[in-house]
Design a binder for these strands. Sequence first.
DNA 1: AGGTCGACCTGGCAGC
DNA 2: TGCTGCCAGGTCGACC
Length: 272
Amino acid sequence: MPELPEVETIARDLRGLLIGASIRDVRVRDGRVVRGMTPPAFRRKLRGRVIADVFRRGKAIIFPFAGSPEYLVVQLMMTGQLIAGASSLPQKDSRIIFSLSSGGFLHYNDQRLFGRLQIVKDLSELKYFQILGPEPLTKDFNAGWIERLLSRRKAPIKSVLMDHTFVAGIGNIYASEILFESGIDPRRPASSLNKEEYRILLKKITGVLRRAIKQRGTSMNNYRDSAGQKGGFMKSIKVYGRENEKCPRCSAKIQRLVQSGRSTFFCEGCQN
DNA sequence: AGGTCGACCTGGCAGC
DNA sequence: TGCTGCCAGGTCGACC
């Protein structure tokens, strides 16, 4: 479900709520979301741990523990949620319930069970982090990187924007929105863009993601923040999910097409 | 090697 | 109402 702005929103909120809290107990209601160890081992490893920080890398939320070399890594995938609350009663699709020293609870909810929770000693144990590209809102992601990577990719620019070895955190919604804002046709081979278009793309990637974080993300469907609230960026969404609606810029009909098995939304009138 | 596809799951919704 | 088929914000291994 969530892309960079949604995961960043959750991580920032949880940082305020959970730093310094200890995990009193862990109830695994569906073990399929725990990877790399059995649910009992997962519970044993987490009980008594003090949460030292909460941060995001790509679309993963990472919890380091005080005085421990281990991390809890949570990947929400399509429908995962981390919801903090006062009740231990299972919510819809609660798969894991953490009880905290504060008296509160953290629910890991996941309708489709694609999400995963893992405990690792080093983040580089996970292939996901080994191959993950630069964070788009840091100086590692710059015009030089974009040009070097894109100039040798023949795949459609939409597919490459979603390739997390090129840039971390962009998913299906923001790929369409970024290309619309950039005025670039999603079907064009990445290598066909010119220097000016690379420059525009960099500007729009950072601009769209920053605005989406400010608005606390986009809730098309399942996304909820750690308080269970929807994101505010929906009202800023120009093309995603708007097939046959009017383009807000030129009034042409917004089109949908499928690229690498994922829906892309764009305006043929103003993206070329 | 780069690119695309299916698998992993559940559930909501449109159409009949 | 109930069935079928399609669709959904991600990732990864298999295949060409």
